[in-house]
Design a binder for these strands. Structure first.
Lengths: 186, 186, 186, 186
DNA sequence: TGGTAAACGAGACGGTACGTCACGTCTTCGC
DNA sequence: GCGAAGACGTGACGTACCGTCTCGTTTACCA
């Protein structure tokens, strides 16, 4: 019989979070500010979320970080270059960088929640890479003993590090990363 | 002519910061708490540091993060494995992880200060790697067109990412990273 | 629609102010001290009062300074003596002296607020005197051209001055004042 | 061998106190402000004065509050009117009012020091009045049993009260006071 | 077609920490 | 050894948000 949860209030809060992230950075987001911006009472926020980080988490999982598809052609190196360039470019626009930095800020504060979020967000990317490398392996394009997950980690670590430093990668740097990973050092 | 700055107060504050990081994490470090723990007045802190982040920066630059030497033998892969394992191990103890996470937290909040700090801390490591790869290049152990700085970035990005997730690398994972970088994908 | 102002908090603060005045004097009353003593947060005080002086004002207007009634018999001099003695005695106990001294301290600091408070507190007394002297005039006990308000001012000025010096008047001095005012100099 | 106390520093401090009183009121006078304004170190102030109040005291006793002479003619009422009007007028200019209000503020805070200061400042005035009334008594102009000190107190109390309220007396009000005191109520 | 119970906005409440100001003490150096 | 300069520990200032708690209002379900 009770009134059901207001979806509109929920969306207002998530939108307010995204807006606040874009304009001020995660650290200066406040619950009071979100409530005011969203036209919602503090109580409503506390009723449905346990912390600022939880709101961020929901906002991230919903309006999610961009992840272009990894193409499958005959040229693995070209595929990776195309995909990683696209990803770096997409991640380079202001709003996405701030989302990523906010994710990092939360993770640096609460490793547990952060690891869970990172997993949810990174898993689809890892799967794509692992699948693509599996294809390549079956074609004999890569070593049979390649640690595909380790490669995926490298890509993600580089992207995170670039976002963290607020120094998003341009195409040249993205290509350099792919180059190093494709050919190795020696 | 006035009384000179108290070096003892300065050291107390930095020590208090390191202790607080180890026990509570950067986010719950408080200027008031530092002052109390250090036996110093808030005013003294505000006189010499502009923010919590600035104190962290000084603490990091001083009692710096550990960085083992990169050995130079005939076997580049073995050298990198030895060095990166040692670094991962050292970085794995509680205090160091918290220092690194704090650095990341600051950087996620203040990209400018964070970038400066990261540069100051990462530069010596990058130099070591670049120099070692130069030696390798002159011996013909690596490709002539290798982007040594990109390789160094890979190592640092992986270390940071591991620290961020609170999932420090063990020897096996460290070796996997070196393996991928040494041999490349194909 | 929000929760209404807590009358209990308000009373606690006023009581804490009165207690602090009695034990320490207005100058060493502290908002923090009041808050602690009243079991109230600082924010609650700042929400409802604009300054320490405003709290004092409310405390004064509420638990007001004592003012005995001016009797009306056939003997004006005896009435004034009785009334002024009573007033001086009442005003002489520790708590009342401190209230009066606090009022003076506020007034010396903020003439505007002080004047308003003095008016609110003095007006009833002035009215009593003016009314009593009007009765006396109609009986022919006083000069027709007497400036009753000036007389009232004299009484109040003397009381204030005595409180200010922390030298409350005893019956003899109170009588001397009445004597001078009744008979004049010549 | 020791350097003697600098009279110049002393005068600078007293001048700074008078200037600060005139422009801001006693409550917002600050030792640090005085030191800066006087071009003197805090230590020098603390070496020679025990408190802000002590500086005010010295400033008052030195550049003293105005006190016109009480004339001695055949007409006592006229003499008192002339004198009290002059005193009210002199006391009415901005700087003097602020000096008086500062004196009251100190007294309201520290009754002991305040009483001492009031005595030093009021005594000459009281003496003048007592002497004048003595002359009047010997001429038969006033009652033989007049309490001259009580009369003097009335004048001083009225002046203080007027200064306290920041409502300096004009000639008419001053005359009204004299009128009441001269002729009494009846 | 009400009644009713939870969700909502508003915002007061006790707190903690913020960054600033002035206190009174101290240390240093120049005169 | 006085005095200017100013660092120090202390403690109050007034502000911002925290998370909790009433309030009175709104609204969807169920009787």
């Amino acid at each position: 019989m009770p009134r059901p949860r207001s979806e509109q209030a929920r969306q207002s809060v998530l939108a307010a979070m995204r807006a606040a992230l874009a304009s001020d950075g995660y650290a200066s987001v406040t619950i009071e500010g979100l409530a005011a911006e969203a036209g919602v009472s503090k109580q409503t926020i506390y009723r449905w979320w346990s912390s600022k980080a939880a709101i961020l988490g929901e906002a991230l999982l919903e309006g999610s970080l961009p992840s272009p598809d990894l193409p499958v052609t005959d040229d693995l190196a070209a595929d990776l270059r195309a995909w990683f360039s696209a990803m770096s470019t997409q991640a380079g626009d202001g709003a996405s960088v701030e989302l990523a930095r906010a994710l990092i800020a939360v993770t640096a504060t609460d490793a547990e929640l952060g690891a869970a979020l990172n997993k949810r967000l990174a898993d689809p990317i890892v799967e794509q890479i692992v699948a693509r490398l599996e294809v390549a392996r079956s074609r004999g394009d890569v070593r049979a003993d390649l640690d595909a997950a380790a490669v995926a980690d490298q890509f993600i670590a580089m992207s995170s590090y670039a976002a963290l430093l607020g120094r998003p990668m341009d195409a040249a740097r993205a290509d350099a990363v792919v180059e190093v990973l494709m050919r190795g050092i020696g």
